[in-house]
Design a protein around this nucleic acid. Sequence first.
DNA 1: GTCTATACCCAGATAGAC
DNA 2: GTCTATCTGGGTATAGAC
Lengths: 201, 201
Amino acid sequence: MSAVSTPEAKNEPSRREQLLTIAAQLFAEKGFRNTTVRDIADAAGILSGSLYHHFDSKESMVDEILSTFQEALFAQYDDILASDDNARSKLERAVRVSFEAIEEHGPEVAIYQNDADYLVTFERFGYLADRNTQSRQVWLTLLEEGVRTGALRPDLDVTLTYRFIRDTVWVAVRWYRPGGQHDHTEVADQYVRILLDGISS
Amino acid sequence: MSAVSTPEAKNEPSRREQLLTIAAQLFAEKGFRNTTVRDIADAAGILSGSLYHHFDSKESMVDEILSTFQEALFAQYDDILASDDNARSKLERAVRVSFEAIEEHGPEVAIYQNDADYLVTFERFGYLADRNTQSRQVWLTLLEEGVRTGALRPDLDVTLTYRFIRDTVWVAVRWYRPGGQHDHTEVADQYVRILLDGISS
DNA sequence: GTCTATACCCAGATAGAC
DNA sequence: GTCTATCTGGGTATAGAC
């Protein structure tokens, strides 16, 4: 009964966290709506009813998964915006942070990419729309600063560019696999190079 | 009873085609698995049982939608590969053809993007995996020709570049809306420009 | 070509025993 | 913290009347 024997004190994930990790993998693989509570319970080696001892619904599970992840991610963006690097460096850092998120939180990124449109239709997931707006602001700020300071082409359509960056960065979660041929820093390097300098000779 | 009075002879879509158009829109919006046959029937103004007079399953519907679309798309890629344009032009044309497909066959592209991973797990959709390989070949051929002829950077990682192009082009189906601020040719122009020359000044 | 009626399955969730 | 047992709703698909 000593505090030292609790999972947290031993730096082990709590049962709750274990279940969320399992659920996140399944949601990412099969989609939120196509993952059943029985799928999650099976993967955890328990019965579906037992899940409801830990969470009051499937929605609560995905909610906790996404909100926890986004809090950490946006803290990193805020750091970048607040830094006094030049525009090009900030843009590079933002790209790198995103690829790092894919490396370290692949399931969370995949769930957001695949299921946010659906989840946003429920009130409790309204924060996903807010985060979306916030993300747009981050990238637009960086791009506009780049144009203003002369680091980026003056004729750049920042809105369209924002979409291209956002899409290409996050959609990499579909093919990027940790431990594969390229690690996430290499992928980020290559992407930054294409984005800034293009592919032509 | 004269042939002239059939829908096809009047260039009107047959009932079957009408139903496929309705289904494609719903599949694209909500995903294949999350669209019910009742959704489709409701949108068509009939009851779900009546759909089975036209199609023997929901799978048959999406099968017909995807295979028809892909046949037309890959015929265009074949044209490009067979042409004697230079490497840069071919690459540009391939990008343009893809954005045009998003303009004219948005639902089909969206279904492929969202549901192909799931559908390929069934034998009858094995052709989707073949088309995927074929598409990869098209882009790799174009990129390798570009590097070989000196149009593209000699140090280019063509595999990674292929993924970036594929992802960014097709994921545009998530935000591109016909009749919006930019038409598909403008989007293609901007994308080609970023891809080839980058965004830096 | 559409409707009525229905079979059958599997989803999310709950109550209470252990 | 997990299990047993079960409710309720909604999914695909079918048979046969109109």
